Every structure is written in C-alpha cells, then in structure tokens.
Amino acid sequence: MASSKKKKPSEKAIETAILTYLNYLPQCFAWKNNSTGIYDPSRGCYRRNRNKFVINGVADILGLYHGRLLAIEVKRDRAARVSNEQHDFLKKVQDLGGIAGICCSVDDARELIKTSGGKHVSNIEGISE
C-alpha cells in the first residue's frame, strides 16, 4: 500500500523554484548566495574565510527587486531552525529598507514580494530561532 504522506521537497529544490520565480519577474534579479567554505583536501575539511568583511548568516538568495535589496533565507519547513546570524542578517536588511524573509515555498516568496510596497517587509518574526 502506498504511503499517503507526501515527501517534502529538498531545500535545494525549493531554492531553485524560488529563484526561477524571482528571475521571471520584471525588475527582479536574484541569485543563489554560496556561503560554504573552501574545501581543503590536505585537511579533509572546509576552511572558513577569516576576512573581517565576510558576514555569517547571509541569506541563501540575494537579489534586487525594483532597486531594493532582496534577501531570502530558504527553509524546508516552518519548524526549521534559523540561526541567530541568519535572523540578524535579515533584520539588518529589513531595518535598512530592504525586503527580507524566510520562505519555505514559492508561495511564501510570492507573498513576500506582493507585500513589499511598504518600507519594511519581513516575515522573520515567529520563525524558530
């Protein structure tokens, strides 16, 4: 008997779907922000960049929407943990007039964009930290 539970898409699949949607919009330019360290084969691990201008917690998706910074942290579901650094980054973008939010689907991204007419747009409150 087949399972009635629908498998949730991976975070990567959600990112791809959101990026496809965003880059279809007029006046929107969005990209995936890679924040993984550089792999060091001699150590067998990823090294962190120690540059003082490298920021921890930068959102998964960055972009411009009608000239405003867009920052979206992608999570697989609403119960996923958002790090303090991720929350602080989104809050800073929001406080400086950008569009910032946590999205678990294209519908979340669509809603974030739809409500972006005001100065401060965010859905970062109420997400697990």
Rank of each mutant, 00 (worst) to 15 (best):
residue 1 M to F: 15
residue 2 A to I: 15
residue 3 S to D: 14
residue 7 K to M: 06
residue 8 K to M: 06
residue 11 E to V: 08
residue 13 A to N: 11
residue 14 I to S: 03
residue 15 E to R: 11
residue 17 A to E: 04
residue 17 A to T: 02
residue 17 A to P: 03
residue 24 Y to K: 15
residue 26 P to M: 01
residue 27 Q to H: 14
residue 27 Q to I: 07
residue 28 C to I: 07
residue 29 F to H: 15
residue 30 A to Y: 01
residue 34 N to M: 08
residue 34 N to S: 10
residue 36 T to V: 12
residue 38 I to D: 04
residue 39 Y to N: 01
residue 39 Y to T: 02
residue 45 C to M: 14
residue 45 C to H: 11
residue 47 R to F: 07
residue 48 R to M: 08
residue 51 N to D: 11
residue 51 N to G: 05
residue 55 I to W: 04
residue 57 G to P: 00
residue 58 V to S: 06
residue 60 D to L: 04
residue 60 D to W: 00
residue 62 L to M: 12
residue 63 G to V: 00
residue 64 L to C: 14
residue 64 L to R: 12
residue 66 H to L: 12
residue 68 R to H: 05
residue 69 L to Q: 13
residue 73 E to S: 10
residue 74 V to Y: 00
residue 77 D to V: 07
residue 80 A to I: 00
residue 80 A to V: 06
residue 81 R to A: 12
residue 82 V to L: 15
residue 83 S to C: 03
residue 84 N to T: 12
residue 85 E to F: 13
residue 89 F to K: 00
residue 92 K to R: 12
residue 92 K to M: 14
residue 93 V to F: 08
residue 95 D to V: 07
residue 96 L to S: 14
residue 96 L to P: 09
residue 97 G to V: 08
residue 98 G to M: 06
residue 101 G to P: 07
residue 102 I to K: 01
residue 103 C to G: 06
residue 104 C to T: 08
residue 104 C to H: 05
residue 104 C to F: 06
residue 109 A to G: 03
residue 112 L to W: 05
residue 113 I to M: 14
residue 114 K to I: 02
residue 118 G to H: 12
residue 118 G to W: 10
residue 122 S to A: 10
residue 124 I to L: 09
residue 128 S to E: 07
